[in-house]
């Protein structure tokens, strides 16, 4: 019921030319519980009780997610490898402009690793370097990555990149280097410290980050009310990154 209403509202909003968020009348600010997502003690392993996820409201992204991409670049230091050709540059995250062929309806959204519950990249990796952490973050353990690129073949979202050259002066918190595959890791180094991923901070009005396993978390509440579509839902991968307005 609430979902139907939500969709109707958005549709009405679109018709009247007002961004969905502009309609303040029905906005309810759930009080965010202070310990919604407690910061993990540094010496404790991550637990499978949480599953991190992200809900991106495309209609509220004024720049289509460009600032999120910029924040990611800054945080992880990709995108300016000196020797790689443009098509060899790593791209952890990019904005994709989608135009429906029939309706010509167009929107732009940021696409990165979708942190699937059933990640194809993890299934195919021969050494187990492509891995899913207990808390649902999909990442590459570069220590045992042999650079076979099979995960890049397997990923439906084109989320992974291969480093084609020697690098120096990487970000200390985000190691990346020659001959290994890399991708968005939801800023694990920040999450483990109890901070938000860089891209979420760059678009606070459009993105909710939180624990998908906790029914009371802000993100779970928002998804319950508004839904959260997946890119290529047909593959049944159960992604951790969800979109509104797709």
């Amino acid at each position: 019921m609430s979902q139907i209403n939500a969709y109707r509202r958005k549709f009405m909003a679109a018709l009247s030319g007002i961004a969905a968020g502009g309609l303040a009348s029905g906005v309810i600010l759930r009080s965010v519980q202070a310990n919604d997502v407690p910061a993990k003690p540094v010496d404790q392993p991550v637990s499978n009780k949480v599953r991190w996820g992200m809900l991106i409201d495309i209609n509220r992204l004024t720049d289509g997610g460009a600032s999120m991409v910029e924040a990611c670049k800054r945080e992880h230091g990709w995108g300016n490898d000196p020797k790689a050709r443009p098509e060899q540059q790593a791209q952890w995250m990019r904005t994709v402009k989608v135009t429906d062929k029939l309706t010509k309806h167009s929107f732009t959204l940021p696409v990165m690793c979708q942190h699937c519950a059933e990640p194809p990249c993890v299934d195919v990796c021969p050494t187990g370097a492509s891995m899913k952490r207990a808390d649902g973050i999909v990442q590459v353990n570069k220590h045992i990555c042999i650079g076979c690129r099979y995960c890049m073949m397997a990923c439906p979202y084109k989320a992974r990149s291969f480093v084609h050259e020697n690098l120096t002066d990487q970000q200390p918190h985000s190691p990346r280097g020659i001959g290994t595959v890399e991708s968005c890791n939801l800023c694990v180094h920040r999450i483990d410290k109890g901070q938000l991923p860089a891209c979420v901070e760059a678009a606070p009005n459009a993105v909710i980050f939180g624990d998908l396993n906790d029914p009371n978390s802000r993100i779970s509440q928002a998804m319950k009310a508004l839904g959260g579509s997946q890119i290529r839902a047909d593959l049944g991968l159960n992604t951790g990154v969800r979109y509104l307005g797709l």
Partner: peptide, 25 residues
């Protein structure tokens, strides 16, 4: 052609049995 041909020993010692690639090894 591997990005890390020097880590061949890893391919022989770490196995992900869900991977058809590992089975091929």
């Amino acid at each position: 052609d591997l990005g890390h041909a020097d880590r061949l020993i890893i391919a022989m010692t770490y196995y992900n049995f869900k991977s058809i690639f590992a089975w091929n090894i």
